[in-house]
């Protein structure tokens, strides 16, 4: 009998796993209660982590969707829809989110970056880009080229 080496056994597992993946994809399986791949890859996360992730995600969604509501100007409401979700989230964090004392203060790049789990430089660039976008769109809509925004 031919005895498989460890590498060959691993290759056998890979073949089985790939065939399974292809089969599931071919047959449009979307959700599996006992997803072996998940167990093997040790991707299972604790309930605590799931709760935290979901809370963060929902918080982000709410912040992004609430961003439009802060404008009174109909032009700005229209323009704010042109921003990406990330840009909205960054602007919301910078200018709207309350700090620990319940006051709305302009935050530093570092604080926002820490909250959103991104680099301070990325936060700064995203904010700059978003403001630039808002400004350009606003001027375009108003038909005014003056830089008084």
């Amino acid at each position: 009998m031919y005895i498989l080496s460890n590498k060959e056994k691993a290759a056998l597992i890979t073949i089985a796993r790939r065939s399974r993946y292809d089969y599931l994809r071919k047959n449009d399986y979307t959700y599996l209660e006992d997803d072996i791949d998940m167990i093997d890859e040790e991707l299972l996360i604790s309930e605590e982590n799931i709760e935290k992730t979901v809370t963060e995600k929902i918080d982000g969604e709410i912040c992004a969707s609430n961003f439009e509501k802060i404008f009174d100007d109909p032009y700005l409401i229209k323009i704010s829809k042109a921003l990406t979700k990330k840009e909205r989230l960054v602007l919301f964090s910078y200018y709207m989110e309350k700090d620990e004392n319940g006051e709305v203060n302009e935050k530093t790049d570092k604080v926002v970056a820490k909250e959103l789990n991104i680099k301070p430089d990325t936060a700064r660039k995203t904010r700059k880009r978003a403001l630039e976008k808002l400004k350009m769109q606003y001027l375009k809509l108003k038909g005014n080229d003056e830089n008084d925004f």
Binding site: L12, I13, A16, R17, R20, Y23, Y29, E33
Partner: peptide, 23 residues
């Protein structure tokens, strides 16, 4: 091993098992 990778929702799917064997 094949049985393990042939399970779908807790039950062995014979078609999937066959597919893996063939591969």
């Amino acid at each position: 091993l094949l049985n393990k990778y042939s399970k779908i929702n807790g039950k062995i799917d014979e078609d999937l098992k066959q597919e893996i064997k063939l591969e």
